[in-house]
């Protein structure tokens, strides 16, 4: 049994990639992951509001300065709060968010193994 759990986790971390394909530049990639705070349910990238336009500039300038992706996110989070990023980081507030579905998946798997006789 532990082997299966290990395998599941291994698989999970192997494929733990962001599915942001077709993005050409870094600005796009980052602004698509930012919430436009004054819009309803739009990303900074998709929005043309004043806020979004200035945010795009901020991100662009920070990339030009040579900042890393994580530094940009950290800076924006410290300024606007966790709410601005679409991908919540794993911390004590969010570990259930990330782990609950996985726990349920393992639990479901155990239930099926109990139900099925292997012959």
């Amino acid at each position: 049994m532990p082997k299966i759990i290990k395998l599941v986790f291994l698989l999970y971390f192997c494929f733990n990639f962001s599915y942001a394909k077709g993005i050409n530049t870094k600005v796009e990639q980052i602004t698509k992951n930012l919430r436009c705070l004054i819009c309803q349910g739009q990303s900074v990238y998709d929005s043309q509001s004043d806020f979004a336009i200035s945010m795009k500039l901020v991100v662009k300038n920070m990339i030009d300065e040579g900042k890393k992706e994580k530094e940009i996110y950290d800076y924006l989070k410290s300024k606007y709060g966790e709410w601005i990023v679409y991908e919540p980081e794993l911390n004590q507030n969010t570990f259930l968010l990330w782990l609950l579905p996985l726990i349920l998946f393992i639990f479901g798997g155990l239930l099926i193994i109990r139900k099925v006789s292997i012959k």
């Binding site: 698989l11 192997c14 962001s18 599915y19 992951n33 990303s43 709060g81 969010t94």
Partner: peptide, 15 residues
Amino acid sequence: KISVGPPFYHKLLIP
């Protein structure tokens, strides 16, 4: 306040 957007769903669902 946190936002849960596309990257979260993609990371958990796609694998």
